[in-house]
């Protein structure tokens, strides 16, 4: 049996979930860890590398949040284009 067609309401619900996830990612503690790993806390080759990786992690997570919001917007646009119940 073929899958039931997705309605605009379902698309909007999925968009909401994605936006909620994006908000949690964007406010994650992991994004601020680099501020605690500066030379005020520790120094050395490994701490230097750690600080660099935490900065990279921040960028990656922020990108992930933006991707989630882009995905949510795309779902909402698709919902708007479908015939409304």
């Amino acid at each position: 049996m073929p899958p039931a067609p997705i309605g605009p309401q379902q698309l909007r619900e999925r968009a909401t979930i994605l936006k909620r996830l994006a908000s949690r990612v964007e406010s994650a503690l992991a994004l601020d860890l680099h501020q605690r790993a500066t030379e005020e806390t520790w120094i050395g080759p490994t701490p230097q590398r750690c600080h660099g990786e935490l900065l990279a992690m921040r960028i990656t997570l922020r990108d992930a949040g933006r991707d989630l919001r882009d995905g949510a917007r795309a779902l909402e646009m698709r919902a708007d284009q479908l015939p409304q119940p």
């Binding site: 996830l21 949690r24 990612v25 994650a28 503690l29 992991a30 601020d32 860890l33 605690r36 790993a37 005020e40 806390t41 520790w42 120094i43 050395g44 080759p45 490994t46 701490p47």
Partner: peptide, 28 residues
Amino acid sequence: SGFCGYDVTLVGGLRAAMARAVDELDAL
């Protein structure tokens, strides 16, 4: 060998923050 110098209190704070961040990411 490399060395690292550190402030015990601040490293403790960092470690705790890392642990919370891991838990938080786990929950997503």
